[in-house]
Write a protein that binds this DNA or RNA. Structure first.
Length: 167
DNA sequence: CCCTGATTCGC
DNA sequence: GCGAATCAGG
C-alpha cells in the first residue's frame, strides 16, 4: 500500500518554511531574539525571517522602538547579563569560538525566578519579560557559563556575518 | 557608519 | 508564498 506522503512533492528540492521552521521562528521571536539572530540560527536570511514573520502577522507591534528599549534595560543584578550581540561580533572578528557544538536537551523542569539565579544556573529567559509566568531556565550551567548546554547553543551562535548585503 | 524591523515588489 | 531589494527609523 504505497499510499503515503500526504504533503510531499515528488521533488522536495527546497524545503522552505516547514512547521518546524515556523515553530522555531516563533519560539526565537518570542524569546526576544532579533531577526538577524533568528535567521542565523535557523539558517536563512534575515529578510526571509522578517518576511515570514510579517506574513504570519507576527510583529512586535512597532519597529525597533520598543525592542531597543528592552535591550537598553540591563538586568543589573549580582550576575551581569550576557551580551549576546557583542559576543557574536567578537566571535566573528576573532574568527573562532571556543563554543562547543554540543546540543543538550532543554529541560523546562528547573525554571526559577530572577532571585533564584545563581552562578551555575542557566539564565535563559522564559516567556516574555514582565509576563506573569516570566522566569528563567534554571538548569545547571557548566563551566561558569551563563546558560545550560542547550541554551548556550542558542545564545552563543558563532554567527558568521557573511551575508551578502545588497550587491 | 553600523544596526534594527517593515514593507514593497518581482519571482 | 517566498525572499531580495528597498524603505524607514535609531
Amino acid at each position: 500500500m504505497p499510499v503515503l506522503s500526504p504533503t510531499s512533492s515528488p521533488t522536495a528540492s527546497s524545503p522552505t518554511w516547514t512547521n518546524e521552521r515556523i515553530e522555531l521562528l516563533k519560539q526565537h521571536f518570542e524569546a526576544g531574539l532579533t531577526c538577524s539572530e533568528i535567521a542565523a540560527d535557523i539558517g536563512v536570511s534575515r529578510n526571509a525571517v522578517i518576511g515570514k514573520l510579517s506574513r504570519l502577522n507576527l510583529t512586535r507591534g512597532r519597529t525597533s522602538d520598543e525592542r531597543k528599549l528592552e535591550r537598553s534595560l540591563a538586568p543589573r543584578r549580582g550576575t551581569r547579563a550576557v551580551p549576546r550581540l557583542q559576543y557574536e561580533m567578537l566571535a566573528t572578528i576573532y574568527g573562532d569560538t571556543d563554543t562547543p557544538v554540543v546540543a543538550g536537551p532543554i529541560d523546562d523542569a528547573n525554571r526559577c525566578s530572577l532571585l533564584e539565579l545563581a552562578e551555575n544556573r542557566c539564565r535563559w529567559p522564559i516567556s516574555t519579560p514582565g509576563a506573569d509566568d516570566f522566569c528563567f531556565c534554571g538548569n545547571t550551567a557548566p563551566d561558569g557559563q551563563s546558560y545550560c548546554v542547550g541554551h548556550s547553543r542558542l545564545a552563543y551562535r558563532p554567527n558568521s556575518r557573511a551575508r551578502v548585503m545588497r550587491g
